[in-house]
């Protein structure tokens, strides 16, 4: 039962498992941030590979904007039941009710930016010293420069000029009280790598990743799911289309693509031939050339 021939997927998997075990070994109270997206679902599988038959040495944490796709929430709950691991949910609604953030108004209102506050509060309340996330360097230019162990100060801020050098496979997780480390085990994976891995491992995904019929409206040239909290008015035209989502964020900021990719093989083929990058379907990145860098400095994942 040996596999002599190691492919790049095996190499990426081995690296990610190594990073997850370093988190377990170096931190007192780590957590795995679970968004319901394919990248964090991949992280969960990697955590199973790193720690089974033992338990995960960390809980899963979900920041719930209240504007999630219902498919994501039902997937999350089923997955937690299967895993038998602990889930902690931080609600953006709580941050709004406590007056810590003010809900945006207007047509393009989104809770996407508000979740940073809820995330930082959840980290502080649970005293997490390391948060594992599914960000990848190929997603965006600022992320291309982020370390695998990325230290945040007590305000949750990322300082790109004060990053620690990361040599060989040695990760320095030493921090001062109040600081925490964001850890990105799949930093070196591309979107296509994640999909190939999901296919190889036969990992189940939320249904919205696959083509389905849905009511959509067009906003700023992008197809958005016609959900109540999109502030739909008489100028919006609701259409019924075959769509799927390439990333799963908040419903207010995640655009769909028209697609007939019903199966994972179709999706992989679609990405191979696609001419738009994955974050091209994220309205939040389009604000300015440095949009992601600025949000990351503020504590966004």
């Amino acid at each position: 039962m040996t596999t002599q021939d190691t492919t790049y997927l095996d190499q990426l998997e081995a690296e990610a498992i190594h990073i997850l075990r370093e988190v377990a070994g170096q931190f007192e109270k780590p957590a795995l941030l679970f968004s319901g997206g394919k990248d964090s679902i991949t992280l969960v599988r990697l955590a199973e590979k790193a720690f089974r038959p033992g338990k995960f040495p960390f809980p899963l944490v979900h920041i719930d904007t209240g504007h999630n796709f219902p498919e994501t929430i039902s997937y999350r709950d089923k997955m937690i039941e299967r895993l038998g691991e602990k889930l902690i949910v931080g609600y953006v609604q709580d941050s709004i009710d406590q007056g810590k953030v003010i809900e945006q108004t207007g047509k393009n209102a989104s809770r996407n930016a508000l979740q940073t506050v809820t995330l930082l509060d959840t980290i502080a309340a649970n005293k997490f010293d390391a948060c594992i996330g599914g960000a990848r360097r190929d997603e965006e230019k600022a992320r291309a420069k982020e370390r695998i162990f990325s230290v945040r100060d007590e305000f949750g801020q990322w300082d790109p000029k004060r990053q620690r050098p990361e040599l060989w496979n040695v990760y320095n997780g030493k921090i001062h009280k109040g600081e925490n480390v964001r850890v990105f085990p799949i930093s070196n994976w591309t979107e296509l790598d994640v999909w190939n891995y999901i296919r190889r491992e036969k990992i189940e995904l939320p249904t919205i990743y696959f083509a389905h019929q849905r009511d959509v409206i067009t906003r700023n040239g992008q197809l958005m799911a016609a959900a109540d909290f999109l502030n739909i008015d008489e100028h919006d035209r609701i259409e019924h289309k075959n769509v799927r989502f390439r990333t799963v964020g908040d419903m207010t900021c995640t655009a769909a693509v028209e697609s007939d990719a019903f199966l994972i093989d179709d999706i992989i083929e679609e990405i191979r031939s696609s001419k738009i990058s994955e974050r091209g379907a994220r309205m939040d990145d389009k604000v300015s050339e440095a949009a992601m860098e600025d949000r990351k400095k503020g504590g966004y994942f």
């Binding site: 600022a142 790109p160 070196n188």
Partner: peptide, 23 residues
């Protein structure tokens, strides 16, 4: 394509290690 940080774009130089992927 590789100069990812604001300061780098402003100064036209590379400050940090940037990772790029292709196949």
């Amino acid at each position: 394509l590789t100069d990812g940080l604001k300061a780098e774009r402003e100064q036209g130089i590379t400050i940090d290690v940037a990772y790029k992927y292709f196949q």
